[in-house]
């Protein structure tokens, strides 16, 4: 199977993919009774553009050596990734029905040994930029055209190891590495910037030696494509960090912009309302 093509994907198709992600997040969370709605809804457009427009992956050859890698520092949003991987054909869509059940490959955080298409395991915040640095080094060692995208959360920016990794990526001029920070503003204990202030992130990443692209609206598909396309495909000498400003819980009015739905569980009435809003919404 050839690498995925950027062309000929209509905006309407992409909007529907993002809706599919959000619907599946609702459905899968209903299986286990608890989930990271807010964290997954904020990245729906980012995942859509990455997987349906930009990343070179082969669902029928998940370990293809020259593929682009995608790692999730914010592994708790894997519930948003699984439906994409299933939709692309990495594993049967019926596997989604086993989400979090005893022995299922699909848990709240991704496991690379169990989930085809998941390039690394995560769950411990702050690890995956380091892992991605290693992947980028390894790809360069082997002359591979593969690139690495590491999605992090804004709360994750408080982890010291992120900045260890940032230093090393700049030191080795890892131009094949993209850091993608989903700045949805929400954390487990409250508003991320109130729990621990990490802004100004642009100045920080620039000071650490990275190119920085500020994505002002991480739900506008044109803006998302422009930012991620530049990050991945523009010639550069350094690693690139995309600061994606998003809305926690985007797509469901009573979740939007609140940190309380970082983790939670919808009752039947609210669940119906959430489905309706997602199905009728025109995000992007």
């Amino acid at each position: 199977m050839a690498a995925r093509q950027v062309t000929n994907t209509s905006k309407q198709d992409l909007r529907e993919k993002a809706r599919m992600i959000r619907r599946e997040v609702l459905r899968l969370t209903d299986i286990c009774g608890s989930g990271h709605y807010g964290s997954a809804f904020s990245i729906a457009e980012l995942l859509t553009v990455l997987y349906y427009q930009l990343l070179n992956v082969r669902p029928d050859e998940p370990q293809w050596a020259d593929r682009d890698r995608f790692t999730m520092g914010k592994g708790h949003a894997a519930i948003g990734l699984y439906p994409v991987l299933a939709d692309l054909g990495f594993f049967p869509a019926s596997d989604l029905d086993s989400y979090t059940r005893l022995g299922s490959p699909l848990g709240d955080h991704p496991d690379m040994k169990k989930v085809k298409g998941a390039d690394f395991s995560s769950g411990s915040i702050g690890h995956n930029l380091s892992v991605s640095v290693g992947m980028a080094l390894g790809l360069k060692c082997q002359g591979s055209p593969g690139r690495v995208v590491c999605m992090m959360g804004d709360g994750e920016q408080t982890e010291g190891q992120v900045w260890e990794a940032a230093i090393s990526a700049a030191h080795w001029n890892l131009s094949n590495l993209v850091g993608l920070v989903d700045i949805n503003g929400a954390g487990s204990d409250g508003i991320a910037q109130e729990t621990m202030r990490t802004e100004p992130l642009k100045a920080k990443w620039e000071a650490f030696g990275w190119d920085v692209i500020v994505l002002e609206d991480g739900h506008d598909l044109d803006q998302v494509f422009d930012a991620l396309n530049r990050a991945l495909n523009a010639p550069r000498e350094k690693p690139c960090c995309v600061l994606a400003y998003t809305v926690a819980g985007k797509g469901v009015s009573f979740m939007e912009g609140t940190w309380q739905w970082h983790l939670g569980f919808l009752g039947p009435l609210d669940l119906d309302r959430a489905y309706q809003e997602i199905n009728s919404g025109t995000i992007g």
């Binding site: 890698r69 380091s130 892992v131 080094l137 390894g138 790809l139 260890e164 090393s168």
Partner: peptide, 19 residues
Amino acid sequence: GIAERNMIGAAAGLATTGM
């Protein structure tokens, strides 16, 4: 440099690429 945790994670990443 003096960044052990980063080194360990990067070693894992290197291993995934076949090194």
